[in-house]
Design a protein around this nucleic acid. Structure first.
Lengths: 153, 153
DNA sequence: TCTCCTTGTTCGTGACACGAACAATCTAGT
DNA sequence: ACTAGATTGTTCGTGTCACGAACAAGGAGA
């Protein structure tokens, strides 16, 4: 493995930006007494009303981790447990009006800051960057497949 | 599904990629029983031997948070506290050979996976992406200064 | 009915982070 | 030299987040 290839610089750039964005998000969320995971939670609940297990899959958490997370969010009035009528074990998680409001505020603030950040490059470059990122994200969200694997049927 | 503004799509792309990279790093680190913060710690110690306060600044942590972090890393033989001879309160933190080895393994694995990820775009596009990221990172790493602030003396 | 599966909680453990309070030491002013 | 204050790092109590094991309750199929 050669030491200083152009790829390494790209890797560095990707991670530096990645850490910066995470820090930005954490800082803004923290300003509203929210953690990253809670922001993700509210984001997911924006257009869904999942059960605990479903929510655990979205967040890639164990179900046991979720109980406490929802407990704390519910205690703060951000979400509520809606008991299911078909299945008396189950509950659906719904974001409250307050949770939605808070989520919006954070989103707007993040969008503003990131817009300021990407404002340093030209419109055309922004479009190019968007296109490049789209390709990477598309690849990233596809499960890694061993070479020679065919398309799943 | 055309978005309202191109910026929003760019923001989404940035965050999706950012989360993916964080997850990738966390997954690889976890495979070696390391947390993200410990990987960062080892990375910083790669070419430094800072005191606790200096290290806290690098990691953006409170000094009290660091004691436990170093305790755990030291217990696992990844770092060691070197008592300073000039100042008997202070200690410098040094990565051990084992810590360096582990850090290398993680770095290589990450580099490999990210290289595979960026491999989906052409060499030329990789260079373009690197250039664009560099601009963003340069902007990001400049501290935001309030209007009227002078240079610190 | 009787079993097995599913849904969600509880409990114990541990990493991580913070602030307040503390001990030890260094430094400056007198 | 001596004292007052600053600096370095730890300890302690608190809280969030995450996990796995064990559990209760309800559903579903034989």
């Amino acid at each position: 493995m050669p030491a200083k290839t152009p790829e390494l610089t790209l890797v560095d750039g990707l991670f530096q930006l990645s850490f910066h964005l995470h820090g930005l998000l954490a800082r803004i969320a923290g300003g509203h007494d929210l953690s990253l995971i809670q922001v993700r939670l509210l984001g997911i609940l924006r257009d869904r009303e999942p059960g605990m297990l479903e929510l655990a899959r979205y967040l890639e958490l164990e179900k046991s981790s979720l109980s406490g997370l929802i407990d704390r969010a519910e205690r703060r009035g951000l979400v509520e447990r809606i008991p299911s009528r078909e299945d008396r074990r189950a509950a659906r998680i719904r974001v409250t009006a307050q949770g939605r409001r808070l989520s919006r505020i954070v989103e707007d603030q993040v969008a503003t800051e990131v817009a300021a950040l990407v404002g340093v490059i030209s419109r055309g470059d922004q479009a190019r960057l968007t296109a490049l990122l789209s390709q990477l994200v598309a690849r990233a969200s596809r499960p890694v497949r061993a070479p020679g694997d065919g398309e799943p049927v």
